[in-house]
Every structure is written in C-alpha cells, then in structure tokens.
Write a protein that binds this DNA or RNA. Structure first.
Lengths: 259, 259
DNA sequence: AAATGTGAACTCATTCACAGCG
DNA sequence: CGCTGTGAATGAGTTCACATTT
C-alpha cells in the first residue's frame, strides 16, 4: 500500500493495546487501595476481582508492560503501583485547564481526584465576565480572553471542555491553537481536531441511552421475573414518516409502529 | 469470583453488536440536528461525517436495524430518527433517580439533556438530612430513607449514582434490591451487581489518565513539531527501586471522590 | 449515476490452557 | 505446589470492495 509514513511497525516496541491502556487506571486504583492497607503482594486472581475483570485478561495486560510478577507468589503491590504510574505518565504533574465553569465545570473543579495524582488544575476559564475573579474550588476563575496566555505560561497540554455544546468547537480550536494536544470533552457535540490531538468524550445522555436500550430489551425478554417495567409509553412519535413498506431486520418487528 | 458483570448476556434475540448500540445515540443526535434544519434526506457519507465516524461503519451499523435507506438517494431523516429512537427505547419515558446531590449530582440534575428526550428525573436523593426538602433544578431533594419507596412508586429502573466512592456500593445494593436494573455510576469505584443488572461507569480520573498516557508518548516520539512540552517532572526519586522493601514512590493516594 | 447493503478479509481483543518458573 | 506469562484459539469489530437497487 505504501501509505507513505505509517508509524513504526515496531518489532518489539511499546505497543500497548488501547484496551489495555484503558484498564490500567482501574488496576492502579485497586492497587492503591491495597497499598493503603499495606498489603504487600497480590495474585492476579485477587487483583482482577478487585478491578472487576478476569484474571487472564489482567495477566495479559501486565505482560505488555513487562514481567513484573513472581511465579508462585503474585505481584508486589508497591512495585506495580510505581510501574503502572510511570507507564501512564503519572510520575509527571500535568497541568490541566477547565473551560466552562457552570454547574458541571464547578463540579469537576471540586473533584478530589484531580490533585490526588498526576494532575493539577492550572486554571478555570469562563466566557462570562461576571464570573471572572470569583473563586471556585479555591481558584479564581479567569476570562476566556486569557486562554492562550494561560496555556502558554503554564505549559498546559490537557484541556477539559465543560461549556455548552454551541461553544465547544470554538473553545477546542483555541485550545489546540495554543498548544493543547489532549482534550476531555463533556459537551454533547462531536469535536473536530487536527491529527495528533487526542479527544475523549464523556456524555451523560449517550450513557443513559445505552442503558435504556438494554433496559428495553429486558422487558421483552421475559424468562422469569419482570421486576419494574415501569416506563410509560409516551404519546410522542406518532408523527413519523408515513411508512412505505420498509423492511425490518428480518420479517418484521413487533407492533410499536406509529398508529 | 463474582466480578461485577457489565457485559452483554448475549441475548439470543436480535443481536445488535454492543459497539453499534454505543454509536446509535451519536447518529441520533446528528439526525436530530438535521431534522431541526428540515433536511429531508442524508447520505451515509454526510451523516457519518456529522457523527464523526466513517461511512462504511455507519452503513453496517444501520444494516443491523434493517434496510432503512434508499439506494441512490440516502436515508430519510425523520424516519431514521424514529427508528433509532425506537430501537434505543426512547419512545418510552424512563423515570430516573439521581442519588448523591453534591456538586456533581446537582450538575447532573440541571443537565438539560435529561428531559429533552426519553428521560425524566423522578427524584433526587441524598443522605444528608439537611438537604431534604431543598430544591435542586426545581425538584425537592428527598432523604435516602425514602429510596425504596420512590423506586417502587415511580417504577424506576434506571439509577444514577453520584455519591462519594465509599457510599456507592451500598447505594447500589439498595437500588438493585428495590428493582433498579440499570445503573450509571459516577463514583470512582467498581460496583458489584447481580446478573441481569447493567452498570455503566463514568470516571473523570480514568479518562484523564488515558489522555496522560498518550500525551506522554507524544513527547518522546517525534522531534519535529513538539508544541508545548510542559508537564514538569514532579519530585520523584528516579530510583526505580529494585523492588523489595521501601515504602513507595510517593506517599499516599487518597480515594478520589466527588464532593 | 449514485448510494445502499453486505459477504469476505482483516485487525484488534478476549479467553483458553498449559508450559515454565519460583 | 501455586501462580505467572504466553502462544494458540476464538470472538468481536472494522474496513474493503462491489453487486444490487432505485
């Protein structure tokens, strides 16, 4: 194919699978709890239970980091805490800015998990001039005008967007232009960013909709006990396109068509 | 042992892949925007761009729902909005309770996306007696004692946990015992639930740690651009420690928890 | 001509099962 | 023995590419 310049095929590189990376914080949290209880070592079985995964997966995950366990014994808790922290980049102190200090932004600023390990709230930024100077979680809110300034002065590379959806892309563009290369987006919108910038998104309504999908399925599945079906069908929707003769998945779906 | 199950039970009914389910809300949002602009039809290419995925994936996703497009033309926006809404269970009105009305809980209660489509905040619940009766987002907070009551009276099957980590499992157990079968967990802890109960988790610090991992990687790879290096190495005796004794790389890591 | 719908190929992730080491 | 570490087997998800339909 000759895609010009892929990445390195890396015969033996640091290729940690994305799915594994996403679980490392989970392991780290479980290990930290063990560490606080002064537990010296832990088996893959125990740690997996604490992290809510199965032990084969956990061992495979750790195998990408190296051989940090002792056969017949398990893993040294302190040592693993350090190795995972290092792998995740938490032996550095990452300055973070939060943009959009509404209800959510304020909640995030107050979130204890920030300072606890690896992250530091470098600034809170809001577009409302009335907010400027007001302290939230002990930090004075600064106006959006200062954004580029703040990013550069503090060497910020991670930004959190907690603005309304309408402002998110614009804020994102400014963050990126100022040097931010990782963004955590709480606004319910798709962000477009240049190559090399990472975006992760947290979206309440998406999560709820996924739950609703499975919930709906449970009701029809039957089988044994249908606990609390609840959810009254709402009138809505009756005004749907006049059904031509579309095909359902197979045959046709039960009822619920617009009457 | 019994690790908290979260994954799909592989119902033998109509098997829509989990990854597809997770994208349906994204498509729905993009379609709703088009609908508001009175756009009648849309191609897979256009819709995919709006949702931030590629078009082959989108077409494959839709193929699990049925044949809702027209070759040579595209998809009817209104019709697709309805089909996806129905598939996600949003033609019902799901009552939801939020437990833990701190900063985060209040932010969630105020989140507009709730009422907008398919969900209704049935109650806000908090363990602090001083909160009882206080209105948040126009709804009076109720005390935890009322929890079982509220769940049953309202036929609630979806619960949102926004308590401190220490209280989350206990709240979860009570929700489940009262009939809740889907839980959205904002507390930074692994919940253990019986089979048949779905849990999804939203965790700020995990997301940040994943970003930090990739951010760290960017620094070392390419030498050309290197925009904003930032992140000062924090006090950290580089001594990787050949294991064994020693307290640990850092002091403590308090359990992170939302206010 | 245009764009869907889908088998087939491919890539990524999980699970199995056991060899190998302390 | 007990438990890790890992190839091999299986499964899930994505992408390709094109026959098919309007």
């Amino acid at each position: 194919m000759a895609t010009g310049r892929t990445h390195r095929p890396a015969t033996r590189s640091r290729g940690i699978p994305e799915a594994t990376v996403a679980r490392l914080p989970l392991y780290l949290r479980a290990l930290t709890a063990l560490s606080e209880r002064s537990v010296p070592t832990v088996s893959s079985e125990e740690l997996a239970a604490a992290a809510g995964v199965n032990s084969a997966k956990l061992r495979k995950d750790f195998s990408y980091l190296g051989s940090y366990g002792t056969r017949g014994v398990g893993y040294d808790v302190e040592y693993l805490v350090y190795q995972i922290s290092r792998e995740l980049g938490l032996t550095q102190d990452w300055p973070v800015v939060i943009v959009g200090i509404g209800n959510l932004g304020a909640a995030l600023a107050n979130y204890g998990g920030f300072a606890s390990r690896g992250f530091r709230v470098a600034a809170l930024i809001d577009a409302d001039p009335a907010m400027a100077g007001k302290p939230v979680a002990g930090i004075a809110v600064q106006h959006t005008d200062e954004l580029e300034h703040i990013i550069e002065d503090n060497g910020v590379s991670i930004g959190v967007i907690a603005t309304p959806a309408g402002a998110a892309q614009q804020v994102c563009d400014r963050l990126v232009a100022a040097g931010v290369t990782s963004i955590l987006n709480f606004a319910p919108t798709v962000l477009t960013v240049p190559d090399g910038v990472d975006v992760r998104k947290v979206d309440l309504s998406i999560e709820l909709q996924i739950l609703a999908f499975h919930e709906q399925r449970k009701a029809g599945d039957d089988g044994a006990a249908a606990p609390a079906p609840a959810a009254r069908a709402v009138a809505e929707a009756a005004a749907v396109a006049p059904a031509d003769d579309r095909k359902g998945p197979d045959g046709d779906v039960p009822a619920v068509m617009p009457a």
